[in-house]
Amino acid sequence: MALIQDLIGEVLCRVPVKPLLRFRCVSKDWCSLIDSNVFAKKHIRTALEFGTGGGLIVNDEAGRCYVVDSEGVDVGSDEAVAVGIKDPLMSLIHGAEVLGAANGLCCVAKSEMSNILLFNPMTRKGREILVVPAPICGFGYDPVNDDYKVVKIAEGKTQFFVFVYSLKTNSWKRVLNVPSKVSFLSKWGVFAGGALYWLASKNPGKGLDTIVSFDLGLEQFKGVPLPPADNKIVNTNSRFMVPVGELLCIFDSYPNHSIDVWLMNKNGSENPWYKAFTVKQPRRHGSEFLRPLAFSKSQTVLLLQVGNTKLMWYDLEKKTFKNVGIRGIRMNFYAYLYNESLLQLAEDKPPQKPLQDKTIQKPSQDEQQKKQQKKRYRMFL
């Protein structure tokens, strides 16, 4: 009997999330299995390994959020259907900015990033995090500790103040190893491969010349050199970062409507970048920005957002574009890739206390420390 249950688990972990949510009605055993965090983690590891289960979370200009499931993002699809997120979750995320997505969870922020919500677009479950405002923020998954983390950065008169929220402990702590003599040029960190990345300047006031990364496992900062650029294009208007799967991607835009696409090497070589390909925009889309969202399973086709109104597939070998209609949205939108998952956000620890203005509490390491911990760190904004 145990063997049969194991085989059922192996089969189900390869099934997409949408039917799995329906399969919970098959029996109590199936419901218990599908609802377990052990199964949810195995399911998303399998999806990431085989490059399946990638959907889109979409913001429109009116502040509404939609979900496009993995079927709509399939390379053979000519049309994607955006389904609006409904209450009670919609009331919490309406008007929010999407900070990013990682391993099945999305992070959005409201009220100048003073109010952050983590949620699962498939299960429609979320957890709200109350924090003090800070202009620089990022969200990602820590594979070393199997944890999700939010990073907030505020600049004081002489130093940066960096705080990290852990979903596993449901608490914040201050990071003391912070960069100095650097200016962050982007307020949202881009998550890729276990780290967050920001465009930055080592010489404040002199423009973009480096990337600052934060390793979520080690909780340490380091500098990353930029890829070389033709015509010395080194500003945030012509160069920007996006995650494409597990890879960090940089787009360099040129006046002739061509775009160089750089991907970060995984092997840690001396040169961290290689030019993957160059995209020549069709004349009819020459004045609109292109933003990569995802590669196909074969890695030969790239899903792009074109402007604020459409999606397109770009064939890297044939150098051709194919339109993807998106039904359900009638206004400008911004799309983000996420991985469909069954991950739960139930409170498994006592709720955190809201952070008081300009004050943040350092988390304890175990129950005994929780009782003794009284020290607070003060953030100067």
Rank of each mutant, 00 (worst) to 15 (best):
Gln5Phe: 11
Asp6Gly: 00
Gly9Phe: 00
Gly9Met: 11
Gly9Leu: 11
Glu10Trp: 00
Pro19Glu: 01
Leu20Lys: 06
Arg22Met: 07
Ser27Pro: 01
Ser27Trp: 01
Lys28Val: 06
Gly51Ile: 01
Gly55Trp: 07
Asp60Met: 02
Asp60Val: 00
Gly63His: 01
Arg64His: 15
Cys65His: 15
Tyr66Asn: 08
Val67Gln: 06
Asp69Arg: 09
Asp69Lys: 02
Gly72Ile: 08
Val75Ser: 14
Ala80Pro: 07
Ala82Ser: 04
Val83Lys: 13
Gly84His: 05
Ser91Cys: 12
His94Leu: 10
Glu97Ser: 13
Ala101Asn: 04
Ala102Leu: 04
Gly104Asn: 07
Gly104Ile: 03
Leu105Glu: 08
Val108Lys: 04
Ser111Trp: 04
Asn120Ser: 10
Asn120Ile: 11
Thr123Pro: 02
Arg124Phe: 08
Gly126Thr: 05
Glu128Gly: 00
Val131Ser: 15
Pro133Val: 09
Pro133Thr: 08
Ala134His: 10
Cys137Ala: 13
Gly138Met: 02
Gly140Met: 07
Gly140Val: 03
Val144Trp: 06
Tyr148Val: 06
Ile153Ser: 09
Phe160His: 10
Leu167Gly: 01
Leu167Met: 11
Lys168Asp: 05
Trp172Gln: 13
Trp172Asn: 07
Lys173Val: 02
Lys173Cys: 15
Arg174His: 04
Val178Asn: 09
Lys181Met: 10
Val182Glu: 01
Val182Gln: 02
Ser183Pro: 00
Ser183Glu: 14
Trp188Val: 12
Gly189Met: 04
Ala192His: 01
Gly193Glu: 09
Leu199Trp: 00
Leu199Ile: 02
Ala200Ser: 14
Ala200His: 00
Ser201Val: 07
Asn203Thr: 15
Gly205His: 04
Leu208Gln: 14
Asp209Gly: 08
Asp209Cys: 07
Val212Trp: 00
Ser213Gln: 14
Phe214Lys: 06
Phe214Val: 08
Asp215Trp: 04
Gly217Ser: 05
Gln220Ile: 07
Lys222Glu: 12
Lys222Gly: 05
Pro227Ile: 04
Pro228Cys: 03
Ala229Met: 11
Asp230Arg: 14
Asn231Arg: 11
Lys232Arg: 10
Ile233Cys: 14
Phe240Ala: 02
Phe240Thr: 06
Val242Cys: 09
Val244Leu: 15
Glu246Gln: 12
Leu248Trp: 06
Asp252Asn: 14
Ser253Lys: 13
Ser258Gln: 15
Ile259Ser: 04
Val261Asn: 05
Val261Pro: 07
Trp262Met: 06
Met264Val: 03
Gly268Ile: 05
Asn271Met: 05
Phe277Met: 03
Arg283Phe: 09
Phe295Lys: 03
Lys297His: 13
Ser298Met: 04
Val301Glu: 14
Leu302Val: 01
Gln305Met: 03
Gly307Thr: 04
Glu317Cys: 13
Lys319Met: 09
Lys319Thr: 12
Gly325Tyr: 08
Gly325Lys: 15
Arg327Phe: 08
Arg330Pro: 05
Arg330Met: 06
Ala335Thr: 05
Tyr336Gln: 13
Leu337Glu: 14
Asn339Asp: 13
Glu340Val: 03
Gln344Met: 10
Gln344His: 10
Ala346Cys: 06
Glu347Val: 02
Asp348Ser: 12
Pro350Met: 04
Pro350Tyr: 01
Gln352Cys: 05
Gln352Thr: 11
Pro354Lys: 01
Gln365Asn: 15
Lys371Ala: 13
Gln372Pro: 00
Gln373Arg: 13
Tyr377Met: 10
Leu381Gln: 11
